[in-house]
Design a protein around this nucleic acid. Structure first.
Length: 223
DNA sequence: GATTGATCATAG
DNA sequence: CTATGATCAATC
């Protein structure tokens, strides 16, 4: 990353930049920033996201806050196939596993992150060289009442199990639109969580992910 | 082919 | 280790 990110000061400015990227290839965008394009994403899984963040001037850092704090917007790139269908689930945030007594949906990180999301669809089929993958039309999304209700319901169900010390019984099958899956360098990483007797226990860190059917629905409703 | 559980790079 | 950015790959 050699150029200096310039955070957009308004929504219109952000959208203007995002729309300007539509149709361009990742190779072209990377070249304009003197960034090397990896041959595959096996060891650079977050490369595409980082590139787009850089292009749009998102504030870098690993804080549990929206990418554009001043605008309240979360930026997410999402790999799609030739039919415009998402190829992967979408990571939202890590799941809080302790000090969660009394935590409500309205106060959760998931809720705040999904209030407003700027989706950047990008061709992700493996047979397409990363250099040639094209950036799609950005979609600014706000959950509808129904979508918000689905998210809230899944979140509350999952959080209740965690609070009850039953995190190890949770699998990716829980939830209609939101699921909980491992989120760590590997399965040997441990973090504190609530035990069965209400005490402390250790488990693999988890993260919340949006299922493909849900994100597909979002990308389908052209705004 | 879709899904679930595992994994990779980097910053602080 | 935790959090960001996600995709990989074994299994169903």
């Amino acid at each position: 990353m050699k150029t200096i990110p310039q955070p957009p000061q308004s929504l219109s400015e952000l959208m203007k930049r995002a729309n300007a990227m539509a149709g361009l290839s990742l190779g072209l965008l990377a070249h304009s920033h003197n960034i090397t394009v990896p041959k595959n994403l096996k060891r650079d899984k977050g490369w595409v996201g980082q590139l787009i963040e850089h292009e749009l001037g998102a504030i870098a850092g690993s804080k549990p806050e929206p990418d554009f704090a001043n605008l309240g917007i979360e930026l997410k790139t999402i790999p799609i196939n030739h039919q415009g269908k998402p190829i992967e689930t979408t990571y939202v945030t890590v799941a809080p596993l302790q000090n969660i007594q009394g935590l409500t949906w309205e106060n959760s990180v998931v809720y705040h992150k999904l209030r407003q999301v700027l989706w950047i669809p990008i061709q992700g089929e493996r047979h397409i060289p990363i250099n040639d993958r094209q950036i799609g039309t950005p979609i600014l999304w706000r959950p509808s009442d129904i979508e918000m209700q689905q998210l809230k319901q899944d979140w509350e169900e999952i959080m209740e199990l965690i609070t009850l010390g039953q995190i190890d019984s949770i699998t990716a099958r829980h939830g209609e639109v939101l699921q909980l899956r491992p989120k760590a360098a590997n399965s040997k990483i441990l973090t504190q969580c609530i035990g069965k007797e209400g005490g402390l226990a250790l488990t693999n860190p988890r993260g919340f992910y949006l299922k493909i059917a849900f994100t597909h629905q979002i990308l389908s409703q052209l705004i």
